[in-house]
Design a binder for these strands. Structure first.
Length: 778
DNA sequence: CAACATCTACTTTTT
DNA sequence: GTAGATGTTG
C-alpha cells in the first residue's frame, strides 16, 4: 500500500476567514461560514451533512474548483463519484464554469458504475473479460437467467427469472460473490439451487464477455483485492476523493470506496462524503444509511460539517417538512433553518373524489397560476408511483397544457431501441449471443423454434457463440434449405456491416443497417397506432449517435447513461416520480395521492416494516422540500388500483404535518358527507406531533379496519384500502344475479364473482370489476 | 411456422 | 387497463 505525505496542513477550524484575509478568492463569495469550511477543509476525512436546499452541490463543485485553483491537484487527480448521471452531468457543468476549463479536465467524475466500467475496461483481462465486454441490462439479465433455468429444468412458473434477478441484485449490492452467499439466503430459490445458479450465471457472463450492473462494481472490488499493484496505481493517481449522496451508497459501493481510500491511513484519507440521512430513499435497492451514520467510526478523526441553512423554501414549507421528518427515529438529526425570510402561503391539502378529479383540479390550478404569470417550468407534479402519471398526462393533453415527463419509461428500454441496439451490438461484438438471439428473427425471417434450437445445440456443443455456430451450420445440410439460405444471407449482411463500420460514421451505418435488415420496414408496415412513434424513436436514436466518435463509445453511453436529454428548452410542467425529483426544486410543487397504501406505499410497509415506513416518510420529506414557494398536497377518496375501485383513507403523513401551516380544502364534490377535512371539526386530528406514526388517527383507523370487516356488512366509505391480499375471501355474501349498489357506479347486477372480486353490470356505468367491500345490497 | 385469441399477472422506486 | 405470455388454430 502506498502512502503519500500530506500535502498541506489541515486548516484549523476557526480560521476560515483568516486563511485568506480579505482577499478570499471570488469563488468563495456568497458562501456561508459552514459552506466555506466545507470547501476549504481539503485534507483529511470530511463528512458534510447537507440538509435539503442548503447548497450541497454548490459546496461540492466549489470544493473541486478550489482544489484545482490552488494547485492541490489537477482535475485528473480528483475522483468524484455521484449516484446518478444527472448529478454527474450537472457537476461537470458547474465545475467547468467555475474553473473555466472543459469537462475533459475531470476524467474521473461520474457515477459509480461509469467509473467502474472505465476501470474495468483498462484491466479487463485481469478479471477474465476482454476490454470490449458488453454491459447487460436487466432485460438481458432476465433472458439469460431464463435460459439457465430451462437448462436446469427449473419450473419458471414457480421460480420466476425476475425473482432470481432480484436476488442476484441483492447479493451483488452487498458485495457478495457466489462463494460468499450465505446458504440460507441461496436456499430460498429453486430448492437450494440459488448459489449454483449464481455461479452458472457468472460463468455464462464470462463466456459472453459480458458484465451486468452489479458486476461493474463487484469485479472492480475483486480487481483491487487481487491485484494490489493495480490498486496502488490508483492510490497514486487519486489525491482527493469525493462522494455525493453518500446516504444512497450500498455495501458494494462502500467497499469499492474503502479500497480506493486506503492509499493513506484512515485518519488521513482525503475523502469527502456529502449526504443527508433524511433523504435516503434507496434502501429498497440495497442502500445502507448505515454507511453515512458510521462514517466517523470508519474514518477516525473525521471532521463533520452540518449545513443547516436552507436557501430554498418558505418557512411554512420548511416547518411542514421538518415536522414530518421528526417522526422518524433513526436519523442523525439536523435542524433546518430558513434563510428565505418569508412565511409564504400555507401548505394546501385538498381532498377530491377520485384521481380524475385530482387531475382536473390540479390542471385548473396550474392554468390559474399560468394566468398569474407563473412559468410552467417552475411547476412540478411529484408522484409516488409512475402509474399515477397517466391521468395527469391525459388531462393535460385535453387542456393543451404543456408537460414533460421526467424519468418515465426509459428510452433505451423501448422495444424498438433495444432491437436496433442489438443489431449494433452484434456489429460491435459478434459474440453477443443475447443480442443475436433477440434479432435473429426480428423482423420475421421465417426462423422458428426448431431452427433456433439447432443453432443453440451447435453452439453449446462446440462451446462457441451463436453467431459462430450459425456460420458453421450454414455450410452444412443440417438446416432446411429455406432457413439455411436465410441465415446465410443474414451472416453475410453482418459481415458486410462490420466491414462498413470501419469506414463510415456509425450513425450512417445504423441507418443503413435498420433499412437493409428490413427493421424499418417492419414498423412502417405495422398498422398499430404506436408505430409512427417507434419510427420516430429510431430516428432519434440515429441522431443521438452522431455525437459519439465510435460505435463502442456510443454503446457504452447507452448502457450506462440511460436518460436522454430532457429538452428543458420549452416551457412545460414537469411530471415525475419522487425518486426522480431528488436534487431538483420548483416554485410550485403538487404532491397528489396522499393516501394510505399509495403513500406510504403498501408494499414498502409490508416488506420493510418500520424501516420501510421511515423510508416512505423520507420520500415524503424529499417531496415537500422540493418546493420553494408553494406546496399543494391532495388525496383522492377513491382510486382504481389494478382495475378495481378502492376507497382510500388519508395518508398518515397528513396527520404528521403541523396544523398551523396547513390549510385544508375540499372540492365539495364528495359523496355522503365524508371529506378529509370534514372530520374532527374541520381540521384533521392532531395529536402529539412526536408520537409514533403508528398511532396517528389515520393509521389507527386503518388498523381497526383490518380483520374486522365481514362481507356484506354495511359499507362505510371510511376505508377499506386494507382489504387487500390478506382478505381470505371466506364466504362472500354475494351471488351472481344479485342487485347491488356502488357509490361511484350506482345500481347494478352481479355477473360473476371470484373471491372478493365482483364483476358487475351497472345500469349506467356498464360492466366493471370492483371489490365486494365497495358495494352494498341494493 | 405464424397469426390470432385468450389469459394472466401486474404496477414502487433504478444504476 | 395493460402488456406480455401462452395456447390454439390455419
Amino acid at each position: 500500500m502506498t502512502s503519500e505525505p500530506l500535502r498541506a496542513p489541515r486548516p484549523a477550524t476557526g480560521s476560515i476567514t483568516s486563511q485568506f484575509g480579505r482577499n478570499a478568492p471570488p469563488y468563495l463569495d456568497g458562501l456561508n461560514e459552514e459552506q466555506r469550511d466545507a470547501v476549504l477543509t481539503t485534507e483529511g476525512p470530511l463528512l458534510v451533512l447537507a440538509g435539503a436546499g442548503t447548497g450541497k452541490t454548490r459546496v461540492l463543485t466549489t470544493r473541486i474548483a478550489h482544489i484545482m485553483r490552488t494547485n492541490l491537484a489537477r482535475g485528473s487527480e480528483i475522483l468524484s463519484v455521484t449516484f446518478t448521471n444527472k448529478a454527474a452531468r450537472e457537476m461537470k457543468e458547474r465545475v467547468g464554469s467555475l474553473v473555466g476549463a472543459g469537462v475533459e479536465g475531470m476524467p474521473w467524475l461520474g457515477t459509480f458504475h461509469s467509473i467502474s466500467a472505465r476501470l474495468l475496461r483498462r484491466h479487463a483481462e485481469l478479471v477474465g473479460l476482454k476490454a470490449d465486454f458488453t454491459i447487460l441490462d436487466t432485460d438481458d439479465q432476465v433472458r439469460l437467467i431464463k435460459q439457465l433455468l430451462e437448462a436446469d429444468n427449473i419450473d419458471e412458473k414457480r421460480w420466476p427469472a425476475r425473482q432470481f434477478a432480484g436476488m442476484l441484485d441483492n447479493w451483488k449490492n452487498r458485495g457478495q460473490l457466489p462463494k460468499d452467499v450465505s446458504p440460507a439466503d441461496a436456499a430460498g430459490f429453486a430448492n437450494g439451487m440459488g448459489q449454483k445458479l449464481y455461479q452458472q450465471y457468472q460463468d455464462r457472463l464470462k463466456m459472453l464477455n459480458a458484465a451486468d450492473f452489479g458486476d461493474l462494481l463487484l469485479e472492480c472490488i475483486r480487481l483491487f483485492r487481487e491485484q494490489p499493484g493495480v490498486l496502488a496505481e490508483y492510490h497514486r493517481r487519486f489525491h482527493y476523493l469525493l462522494v455525493d449522496e453518500y446516504q444512497d451508497s450500498n455495501v458494494a459501493q462502500y467497499l469499492w470506496l474503502r479500497l480506493l481510500a486506503q492509499g493513506r491511513p484512515a485518519p488521513e484519507a482525503n475523502l469527502c462524503v456529502v449526504g443527508d440521512d433524511d433523504q435516503s430513499i434507496y434502501g429498497w435497492r440495497g442502500a445502507e444509511v448505515d454507511n453515512i451514520l458510521r462514517f466517523e467510526k470508519d474514518f477516525p478523526g473525521a471532521k463533520v460539517i452540518r449545513l443547516e441553512r436552507n436557501y430554498r423554501s418558505t418557512s411554512n414549507i420548511l416547518a411542514a417538512a421538518s415536522h414530518l421528518i421528526a417522526h422518524n427515529e433513526s436519523r442523525l438529526g439536523k435542524t433546518l433553518q430558513t434563510d428565505v425570510g418569508e412565511e409564504g402561503e400555507k401548505v394546501a391539502v385538498t381532498s377530491v373524489w377520485d384521481s380524475e378529479e385530482e387531475a382536473r383540479t390540479i390542471g385548473e390550478e396550474i392554468e390559474q397560476y399560468q394566468r398569474q404569470g407563473d412559468k410552467l417550468n417552475s411547476i412540478a407534479i411529484l408522484v409516488r408511483a409512475s402509474f399515477q402519471m397517466r391521468e395527469f398526462e391525459e388531462r393535460f393533453i385535453t387542456l393543451g397544457l404543456n408537460y414533460r415527463v421526467i424519468g418515465g419509461p426509459r428510452f433505451y428500454e423501448r422495444r424498438e431501441i433495444r432491437d436496433a441496439l442489438a443489431y449494433l451490438r452484434i456489429v460491435s461484438q459478434q459474440a453477443d449471443d443475447l443480442a443475436f438471439e433477440r434479432i435473429v428473427n426480428t423482423p420475421k425471417r421465417g426462423l422458428g423454434d426448431t431452427t433456433i434450437k439447432t443453432l443453440y445445440d451447435t453452439a453449446r456443443l462446440q462451446r462457441i457463440p451463436l453467431f459462430a455456430a450459425t456460420r458453421l451450420l450454414i455450410e452444412t445440410e443440417e438446416l432446411k434449405p429455406k432457413q439455411r439460405s436465410t441465415l446465410k444471407a443474414l451472416v453475410m449482411q453482418f459481415d458486410d456491416w462490420s466491414e462498413r463500420a470501419r469506414t463510415i460514421p456509425q450513425a450512417e451505418l445504423a441507418e443503413q443497417i435498420l433499412d437493409e435488415s428490413g427493421y424499418t420496414a417492419m414498423w412502417q408496415n405495422d398498422k398499430a397506432p404506436d408505430s409512427p412513434g417507434r419510427l420516430e424513436n429510431l430516428k432519434e436514436l440515429v441522431r443521438s449517435m452522431e455525437e459519439f466518435d465510435t460505435l463502442g463509445g456510443f454503446l457504452e453511453h447507452i448502457s450506462l447513461v440511460m436518460d436522454r436529454d430532457t429538452g428543458a428548452d420549452s416551457d412545460a410542467v414537469s411530471i415525475m416520480t419522487l425518486h426522480a425529483a431528488k436534487g431538483l426544486e420548483f416554485n410550485t410543487v403538487f404532491l397528489p395521492g396522499l393516501e394510505e397504501g399509495l403513500f406510504p406505499h403498501q408494499r414498502a410497509l409490508d416488506e420493510g416494516g418500520r424501516a420501510g415506513l421511515e423510508e416512505e416518510r423520507r420520500l415524503a420529506y424529499v417531496g415537500l422540500t422540493r418546493a420553494r414557494k408553494r406546496l399543494r398536497l391532495s388525496l383522492a377518496q377513491n382510486r382504481r388500483i389494478h382495475g378495481l375501485w378502492q376507497s382510500a383513507i388519508p395518508s398518515r403523513f397528513l396527520d404528521e404535518l403541523p396544523a398551523a401551516v396547513v390549510e385544508v380544502k375540499d372540492t365539495g364534490s364528495s359523496y355522503g358527507g365524508y371529506t378529509y377535512g370534514g372530520r374532527a371539526g374541520g381540521r384533521f386530528d392532531l395529536r402529539d406531533p412526536f408520537e409514533s406514526g403508528y398511532e396517528t388517527p389515520g393509521w389507527q383507523r386503518a388498523k381497526a379496519q383490518q380483520g374486522s370487516r365481514k362481507g356484506g356488512g354495511p359499507v362505510t366509505i371510511d376505508g377499506d384500502l386494507v382489504a387487500r391480499s390478506t382478505d381470505d375471501g371466506r364466504g362472500s355474501a354475494y351471488a351472481p344475479g344479485q342487485r347491488v349498489f356502488h357509490l361511484k357506479f350506482g345500481y347494478g347486477t352481479i355477473a360473476t364473482l371470484e373471491g372478493n372480486k365482483l364483476t358487475i353490470d351497472f345500469e349506467k356505468a356498464g360492466r366493471k370489476k370492483v371489490l365486494d367491500s365497495f358495494v352494498q345490497k341494493g
